[in-house]
Amino acid sequence: MSGIMKFSRFAIKNLFSKPATREYPYVKKEYKERYRGRVAIDIDDCLFCGLCSRKCPSGAITVDRNERTWKIDRMGCVQCANCVEGCPKKCLHMENVYTEPDVTKVEDVFKGKPVEKKAEAPAEDISGKLPKADLDSCVFCGLCAKNCPAEAIAVDRPNKAWTLTEDMCQHCGVCSEKCPKKCISFV
């Protein structure tokens, strides 16, 4: 075939083949399972530790510990899934559907259930407080260190030592929740 006619076979083939595009409003695209469409939250499992809002590169997430609300600015979210990776409770995940386009900025607010008032232990406000292990009852299992989202706790089992890097602590309370002996308190 001469050089000048090279493309003609594509042109002829295209005449008789199906279109490469989808007839959009009638045929919807099926998103793949891993597709990062938008962030979803299981609000009942959320601790309101706020780690997701600190990790968010675009600052789209706002967590209010006292109000027990988790807010996301859908138009500000860049779908990087850093919050999902960082969530200590694994209550965040990515859904494979988009946020619908809109003319106003959409902000989704999720409200957690109010804390059930237990007679013996009212919900403690731990913001700004640091965890402290009661070394007499601690078994040095290391679960707190393993679950600490900020890697602020180090447990040295052979030497029976429990250390906290104070400036790395995110005051999330995961360590005390995970402790099997319930020996971590906040001071």
Binding site: E33, R36, V78
Partner: peptide
């Protein structure tokens, strides 16, 4: 034609990483 081919690669990215453009 070139971009039609490219679309297939983007679909593969979508299936493997979850993003078509930014993979994270």
């Amino acid at each position: 034609q070139c971009w039609r081919m490219r679309e297939k690669v983007l679909d593969m990215f979508e299936a493997s990483t979850g993003g078509r453009v930014i993979f994270s």
